[in-house]
């Protein structure tokens, strides 16, 4: 680095300027250095692109292989079979319900985590994180011993004539258990990032707490909430372990697409391939539409 004399100079040395503000330099297009600067910038871009290739290839190749193995004719034929149609419709219905319930029940939790400081906050935070790290089959067993016929809560429900295991309700509960944390954490991050001063300003202008949340906080945190909701939906769609243990496997009632694929794999690899391709297509279309068309702000938070 330069000696102390540099700091005394009223105008910094040209080389120091270049090192400190390369972007401005490139933009101003000063002749002598522009060539060298943009080359290394391009070089950096190339290096970055090369560094990205392994992971992108790794993600892309299996999906590509799947698509290439399945013929469109077989795809359409299989779409028509009752088992496949039932699995698709069941998956879409249950994940939609899961998403709705998660947003309704999870937003208050996200708000509390983002805004309130209280004793045991870390415990709540950890509790919300837990389902994300638990193996799904463990989640299924836990749900079973809680809500099953002889479960902690389930036994009382059973006396009242309500049984949850082996029903669509169980599918939704299994999905919610494993997927809700994604929405809650993302929404909490989004809410925490909203400038309190804006909320206070709205309150000063006479907005009630509900109005402040609805008109100021939620729209500003909307991107994060939306992104979290998308991840929740995606996780719920792919849920397998907790579903098969808690809800069981019954075509038309509890056999979601991942279950149908798993059992299809064991019966006929071809059937499994078709189902997998269909699930991939559905996921891609929905995520693409949601992120590309509706989720303009998603990229910022997630």
């Amino acid at each position: 680095m330069k000696g102390p004399t540099t700091r005394d100079e009223p105008r910094p040395d040209a080389r120091v300027v270049r090192e400190a503000m390369p972007a401005a330099e490139a933009e101003s297009g000063l002749a002598s250095s522009a060539g060298a600067r943009s080359l290394s910038r391009r070089g950096r871009s190339i290096l970055l692109a090369v560094a990205c290739v392994p992971l992108i290839a790794f993600l892309l190749l299996p999906l590509l292989a799947l698509v290439l193995r399945v013929s469109p004719a077989r795809l359409l034929t299989n779409l028509a079979t009752p088992q496949v149609a039932q699995a698709i419709s069941l998956s879409l219905t249950t994940t939609a319900i899961t998403l709705l319930l998660t947003v309704l029940a999870g937003t208050p939790v996200a708000y509390v985590l983002a805004r309130r400081r209280f004793r045991g906050r870390v415990v709540l935070d950890t509790l919300v994180d837990l389902p994300m790290v638990l193996p799904p089959s463990v989640a299924g067993i836990a749900l079973l011993v809680a809500f099953g016929r002889l479960g902690l809560v389930g036994r009382y429900l059973d006396l009242a004539g309500v049984s949850i295991a082996f029903t669509q309700a169980a599918v939704v509960l299994a999905q919610m258990f494993v997927a809700a944390p994604f929405y809650i954490k993302s929404a909490a991050a989004g809410i925490a990032a909203v400038d309190r001063e804006l909320e206070q300003a709205a309150a000063l202008d006479g907005a009630g707490p509900a109005q402040v949340f609805g008109r100021v906080t939620a729209p500003l945190a909307g991107g994060a909430m939306f992104g979290g909701a998308v991840m929740t939906w995606a996780r719920a769609l792919g849920e397998f372990g907790a579903t098969i243990v808690f809800a069981g496997n019954f075509p038309g009632r509890t056999q979601t697409m991942p279950l149908a694929i798993y059992l299809g794999f064991e019966l006929d690899f071809d059937v499994a391939l078709t189902l997998a391709a269909i699930l991939l297509a559905i996921s891609f279309v929905v995520l693409f539409v949601v992120k590309g068309v509706l989720g303009r702000d998603v990229g910022r938070e997630v």
Binding site: D129, M132, V133, S186, A189, A192, E239, G241, E301, V302
Partner: peptide, 27 residues
């Protein structure tokens, strides 16, 4: 600091996702 906290949370989320969230197909 709010920015950093939310960034940290997102990192934690992704880390947790990688660790266990998507472990389906338990054989």
């Amino acid at each position: 600091s709010g920015c950093r906290r939310s960034g940290f949370r997102v990192v934690c989320l992704l880390f947790a996702l990688v660790l266990g969230g998507c472990g389906n197909g338990a054989g």
